[in-house]
Amino acid sequence: MNLRRPLLLASNSPRRKELLASLGLTYKAMVKEVDEAFPAHLQRQQVAEYLASHKADAYIADLHDEVLITADTIVCLGDRVLNKPADHAEAKEMLLALSGTDHDVITGVCIASTERKTVFHDTTKVYFKQLSEAEIDYYISNYKPFDKAGAYGIQEWIGMIGIERIEGSYFNVVGLPVQKLYEKLVQLEILAVNAQL
């Protein structure tokens, strides 16, 4: 595959970095501290898109020929948006709420350059079994999911033992809807697919 312009990933997430690299794309990662507050009136998918777009705004002035990718993943239980837990107690409260029910994971993505900005999202429905308190405590103590929205990582132990099924993209839950991202990069003529593929 051939990138027509240099690619920047504005993320410190090792999972997003790994997923982008797994697409066969060469990129440079960079990180700035960006406020993740959002207007209270936004619908759920609008929150993810707003945050991804808001992150991109912090980098636009630094861009020259590069194309920037930003993303934000939120976990939604009904109308409640579950952010990153502050501590063990908050993580446990979130996982108890997710236990035995389904929730939506929405990742907003922004592809930005000096000329334009494209924003989209993907949604995956995740079904948790009824988790025991012992399982929840074990997971939090050993995996410390305080950097993860909804207090869990699907690729970790809790996902292996607790998630019964999903509807939609697995990679979206990990943190980047790579199939949709790939399609957008091709549509925007940022990425060309070589004939030998």
Score class of each variant (00 low, 15 high):
48 A>I: 04
97 A>I: 03
128 F>Q: 00
136 I>M: 00
170 Y>S: 05
181 L>R: 00
40 A>M: 15
167 E>I: 10
137 D>N: 13
33 E>Y: 10
44 R>D: 15
50 Y>R: 02
176 L>C: 06
94 M>C: 07
194 N>W: 07
25 L>I: 15
69 I>N: 02
83 N>R: 11
4 R>K: 14
171 F>K: 11
23 L>P: 05
134 A>Q: 12
73 T>L: 12
33 E>R: 09
116 R>S: 12
73 T>N: 10
111 I>S: 00
78 G>K: 09
61 A>P: 06
35 D>Q: 06
11 S>L: 02
17 K>E: 11
2 N>R: 10
87 D>A: 13
26 T>I: 15
63 L>Q: 08
82 L>Y: 06
93 E>P: 08
132 S>Q: 11
114 T>R: 15
88 H>K: 08
109 V>G: 01
111 I>M: 03
63 L>E: 07
128 F>H: 02
104 D>A: 15
89 A>F: 12
3 L>Q: 10
36 E>T: 02
28 K>L: 14
91 A>S: 04
60 I>Y: 05
5 R>F: 07
59 Y>F: 15
186 V>S: 11
169 S>C: 13
29 A>Q: 04
180 K>Q: 11
144 K>L: 13
59 Y>S: 04
64 H>T: 08
127 Y>K: 12
36 E>F: 04
108 G>D: 02
197 L>N: 08
52 A>F: 00
